[in-house]
């Protein structure tokens, strides 16, 4: 029973981080109809930016916002100089359908290469602001620590902020309008290009938080070749697909479902299925319920 509760707790915390990654995939998808496979690379870069801030100011509470701003800036920069050119240039010919996918992969490689050049390939460390030692009940230790609590709180706060932004502000209305129909939005006076860049930078912010918390929830060490970031790359995508790719709520649900399933598989089946389990889950979801758990029936043929 105790093990069961711990498995759930681990699953929820991991799922919360996957949710953040899924949110950034969904935000980019909604604003430009591109699956950004470079998102994990951008999250890694933001984490390195956060690490630099940590080295200078020695405070996680400065490092986190710096990483978020850095993530937003990197993301906006990529959208401005790169994605716009891509959309303009390769929209015809046999490669048109796959060009954005291939391009974001190229970006992933480029970002990783830049990181390895600037920071080297060795591990660097990032320490969380609170301890990761679990609370204890009697003589047993829960798999839930102040750090995991902080992770959950951060994710919830970020989710609320995004929801308010989308549902209650005029920027949110523009974001939704340009995702729904860019042409009509443009005719109604929405600055679609600006809104797209904004969507990307929000995604970069969310990815930065995911990267920072993924790192401090692990052993704190990370490098350009970190397994954690390979995992973020696929879990974010899979969580977004489970959630139907279109909605933020879906992304969160998808992240939590994925986190819980992986946690249970690792605990009760085999610990070495770490990498293949997400793939199997993705296949099952795509075959049984391809529109995602909260998705609508349309939006499938991308």
């Amino acid at each position: 029973m105790f093990q069961f509760i711990n498995t759930i707790l681990i699953g929820i915390t991991a799922g919360a981080i996957y949710s953040l990654m899924a949110i950034s995939i969904v935000l980019v998808w909604r604003s430009t109809r591109v699956i950004n496979f470079a998102q994990a690379g951008m999250a890694l870069l933001s984490t390195y930016i956060g690490y630099e801030a940590m080295v200078h100011f020695n405070s996680f509470w400065i490092a986190l916002p710096v990483a978020m701003i850095g993530g937003a800036a990197v993301s906006a920069f990529i959208e401005l100089v790169f994605m716009r050119l891509l959309v303009k240039r390769s929209s015809t010919g046999p490669i048109a359908a796959v060009a954005p996918i291939i391009a974001t992969l190229g970006l992933l490689g480029l970002i990783k290469g830049v990181i390895s050049t600037v920071w080297g390939g060795a591990d660097v460390r990032l320490v969380g602001p609170v301890t990761n030692v679990g609370y204890s009940i009697g003589d047993k230790t829960l798999a839930f620590s102040p750090l995991k609590l902080l992770t959950l709180v951060t994710v919830v706060v970020l989710m609320l902020l995004l929801t308010v932004l989308f549902q209650r502000s005029s920027i949110g209305l523009s974001l939704r309008a340009s995702a729904y129909s860019p042409e009509i939005a443009r005719l109604s006076g929405v600055k679609v290009d600006f809104i797209r860049t904004l969507g990307w930078s929000l995604a970069g912010t969310s990815g930065a938080v995911a990267g920072m918390f993924q790192t401090i929830n692990g052993n704190g060490a990370f490098s350009p070749e970190s397994i954690e970031f390979s995992l973020l790359l696929i879990t974010g995508f899979i969580a977004a697909v489970i959630g139907g790719l279109e909605s933020l709520v879906g992304a969160v649900v998808g992240g939590l479902v994925l986190g819980l399933v992986i946690s249970f598989v690792l605990m009760y089946v085999s610990g070495s299925l770490f990498f293949i389990a997400p793939f199997v889950i993705l296949l099952i979801v795509l075959i049984i319920k391809p529109q995602g758990i909260v998705g609508t029936k349309v939006a499938r043929r991308a």
Binding site: V98, I234, P290
Partner: peptide, 25 residues
């Protein structure tokens, strides 16, 4: 068989997950 049901980005993500997962098997 799985791929025939998927389009563009979905297929890309699925095969990507396979590329990361399979060698570790």
């Amino acid at each position: 068989v799985a791929a025939a049901r998927l389009s563009g980005p979905y297929l890309a993500g699925t095969t990507l997950a396979l590329a990361i997962g399979l060698p570790s098997l």
